[in-house]
Deep mutational scan, measured.
Amino acid sequence: TEYKLVVVGAGGVGKSALTIQLIQNHFVDEYDPTIEDSYRKQVVIDGETCLLDILDTAGQEEYSAMRDQYMRTGEGFLCVFAINNTKSFEDIHQYREQIKRVKDSDDVPMVLVGNKCDLAARTVESRQAQDLARSYGIPYIETSAKTRQGVEDAFYTLVREIRQH
């Protein structure tokens, strides 16, 4: 089974770092803004072998026109913010609204991801993020692309959301 996953969120929150940590098991430290990259990885989730087709997208506003296209083809979405960047957390709402509009559905598989949880300088409390996820009816997972904490959990949870859909 193949799953088309799309990673969305503001610029600099760590979308590529999360994806590369999942696929290649290493942490990319330097920031190089993405336009669009796709990665494929075969994994076993709950005993089922599946192929993850992951689209890593641009957070930069100037590429926002490309969003409709990949939102149409994606089956599930990782909505990523950084726990030390309140603005990126506030941006999640717009991504969710755009996904709902493009998919013409209120019920699209999504996982809210709070990345950079290895950093002490948190400005978005776990509780705020949990409340937001609960209001959307989606899971919330904290990750660190640096330490790998929660990385597999985030992507695998999204696959489970798609399966249950």
Rank of each mutant, 00 (worst) to 15 (best):
T1E: 02
E2S: 00
E2P: 02
Y3F: 04
Y3G: 04
Y3E: 01
Y3H: 05
K4Y: 05
K4R: 04
L5H: 01
L5Q: 01
V6K: 03
V6R: 04
V7Q: 04
V7A: 11
V7N: 02
V8C: 09
V8G: 01
V8L: 01
G9Y: 01
A10Y: 07
A10V: 05
A10G: 07
G11E: 15
G11H: 15
G11R: 15
G12D: 15
V13G: 14
V13P: 10
G14Y: 00
G14N: 01
G14C: 00
G14I: 00
K15E: 00
S16T: 13
S16C: 00
S16F: 03
S16G: 00
S16V: 00
A17I: 11
A17E: 03
Q21E: 14
Q21H: 14
L22K: 15
L22I: 12
L22Y: 04
I23N: 15
Q24T: 07
Q24W: 04
Q24G: 13
N25G: 03
N25W: 09
N25C: 03
H26G: 13
H26V: 01
F27M: 13
F27R: 01
E30G: 03
Y31P: 08
Y31W: 02
D32C: 12
P33A: 14
P33M: 09
P33F: 07
T34I: 04
T34H: 00
E36F: 04
E36W: 02
D37K: 02
Y39T: 00
Y39W: 06
R40W: 03
R40D: 01
R40E: 01
K41Y: 00
K41L: 10
K41Q: 02
Q42C: 02
Q42F: 05
Q42D: 02
Q42L: 02
Q42Y: 01
V43D: 02
V43Y: 05
V44F: 00
I45L: 03
I45N: 06
D46C: 04
G47C: 02
G47W: 00
G47H: 04
T49A: 06
T49N: 08
T49P: 02
T49V: 05
T49D: 01
C50V: 02
L51Q: 09
L51D: 11
L51T: 06
L52Y: 13
L52D: 00
L52G: 03
D53E: 09
I54D: 00
I54W: 05
I54R: 03
I54H: 02
L55S: 12
L55V: 04
D56M: 06
D56W: 05
D56N: 01
D56V: 02
T57C: 08
A58T: 15
A58L: 07
A58G: 15
G59V: 10
G59P: 14
G59F: 11
G59K: 13
G59C: 13
Q60F: 15
E61V: 12
E61R: 14
Y63P: 15
Y63G: 15
Y63M: 12
A65R: 08
A65T: 10
M66L: 06
M66T: 13
M66S: 14
R67M: 14
R67K: 09
D68C: 10
M71D: 14
M71K: 13
R72D: 10
R72Q: 06
R72T: 05
T73K: 04
T73Y: 01
T73E: 06
G74M: 08
G76S: 02
G76T: 08
F77D: 02
F77W: 03
F77N: 01
L78K: 01
L78Q: 06
L78C: 04
C79I: 05
C79M: 07
C79A: 08
V80D: 01
V80F: 13
F81E: 02
F81T: 08
A82W: 03
A82M: 06
I83Y: 13
I83K: 02
I83N: 00
N84L: 05
N85G: 07
T86F: 07
T86L: 10
T86V: 02
K87R: 03
K87W: 03
S88E: 05
S88C: 10
S88M: 04
F89Q: 02
F89M: 06
E90D: 01
E90Q: 06
D91W: 10
D91T: 07
I92V: 08
I92K: 07
I92H: 02
I92G: 08
I92Q: 01
H93D: 05
H93N: 12
Q94T: 11
Q94G: 06
Q94W: 14
Q94Y: 04
Y95I: 10
Y95S: 03
R96S: 05
R96T: 00
R96D: 00
E97W: 00
Q98E: 02
Q98Y: 13
Q98S: 09
Q98K: 11
I99P: 02
I99F: 09
K100L: 04
K100A: 10
K100G: 01
K100P: 01
K100S: 06
R101D: 05
R101S: 06
V102S: 06
V102Q: 00
V102A: 07
V102H: 07
D106R: 06
D106M: 01
D106E: 07
D107H: 08
V108W: 01
V108S: 03
V108D: 03
V108N: 00
V108A: 05
P109R: 01
V111S: 08
V111E: 04
L112F: 12
L112I: 13
L112G: 08
L112M: 07
L112C: 14
V113E: 10
G114R: 09
G114N: 06
N115K: 14
N115R: 08
N115V: 15
N115S: 13
N115A: 14
K116L: 15
K116R: 15
K116D: 12
C117E: 10
D118Y: 02
D118F: 11
L119C: 13
L119P: 15
A120M: 11
A121F: 09
A121Y: 04
A121R: 10
R122D: 14
R122G: 12
R122V: 12
T123A: 09
T123C: 10
V124Q: 11
E125C: 08
E125G: 10
E125W: 06
E125L: 12
E125M: 12
S126M: 10
S126R: 09
S126W: 11
S126G: 12
R127Y: 10
Q128A: 11
Q128R: 10
A129G: 07
A129Y: 10
Q130C: 04
Q130K: 12
Q130W: 10
D131E: 13
D131T: 12
L132Y: 14
L132P: 12
L132R: 10
L132F: 06
A133I: 10
A133Q: 04
A133W: 12
R134F: 07
R134N: 11
S135C: 15
Y136L: 12
Y136D: 08
G137P: 07
I138G: 09
Y140R: 09
Y140V: 11
I141G: 14
I141P: 08
I141W: 01
E142L: 12
E142S: 10
E142V: 11
T143Y: 12
T143L: 15
S144W: 14
A145D: 03
A145R: 05
K146V: 15
K146I: 14
T147L: 08
T147Q: 13
T147N: 13
T147F: 10
R148P: 12
R148I: 14
Q149K: 13
Q149T: 12
Q149N: 13
Q149P: 14
G150E: 15
V151Q: 15
V151S: 14
V151W: 15
V151K: 14
D153P: 08
D153F: 13
A154V: 10
A154D: 01
F155P: 09
T157S: 11
T157D: 09
L158C: 06
L158V: 13
L158I: 12
V159S: 10
V159H: 10
V159E: 11
R160Y: 12
R160N: 13
E161H: 13
E161W: 13
I162E: 11
I162T: 10
I162K: 01
R163V: 12
R163E: 11
R163M: 08
Q164H: 07
Q164P: 10
H165K: 09
H165T: 10
